[in-house]
Amino acid sequence: MTVKFTINGVPVEAEKGESVIDVARRYGFEIPSLCHHPAVEPYGACRVCLVEISKGGRKKMTTCCNYEVQDGIEVVTDNEDIRRNRATVIELLLAEAPKAKAIVKLAEEYGIHKSRYEKEGDPVAQMHDGCILCGLCVRVCTEVVEVSALNFTGRGDKRNVGTPYMETPQNCIACGACAYVCPTDCIGFEEENGVRRLKKWNRELPLAKGEDGRPFAPQFQLWYFTQKAGLDKDFYKKGGPGSR
């Protein structure tokens, strides 16, 4: 079913169930986002995708990654009000992750060079280690990789993302998907001396060699793929399932 509405006055069409952010981007409108990825369910954590949406004469400011398209809504993706509100959110995020490139860049676009909220030696900020609790790693590991090695832990100012019992997750295949989607690069993906490492989860797996003799991917990851996809057990030849 097609849904018709407008973005910045431009008539647009979308499929029912799509989110406003995906449609806006398809039509070329720029909206910042940190916790959104089209491959996973929206979570609405970072709040930088604020837009204005009018419906039946009522206007409200809302996040649009978790706003489903509706007939007749009018979306505004940029104005002074929106920018001011996004700037506040970005400044708060910058305080949590002052070293994260994506956030520093976004902050600069919004004219913020240093967060007024930054606290040197703040124990909560230290615990989070640059993580903004966007939950992308959790959602990717659960919904896409289907390993579910990660989740949120605790509540309030003790809220964090991590592995059960804060131990090395034995089910993690070290695929690196979590590190790939992390907007603050705080997970730490490394490959050296034939070992792949995910620092934040304290997971390390040896890399199997590919046909060219070069380290390729963890044997455990390849084994998982062959199992999941029902592939022949020799699918990855040398990197095959010998690990189990």
């Binding site: 659960t142 579910s148 989740n151 832990t153 605790g154 592995t163 059960p164 019992y165 997750p169």
Partner: peptide, 26 residues
Amino acid sequence: REAVTRISQKLSVPVARIYSMATFYT
């Protein structure tokens, strides 16, 4: 911990999710 593992296995719910809930509710 053994109970958490057992629940996880029998319900097919990831341990990570049970741990998450167990640390969320005081």
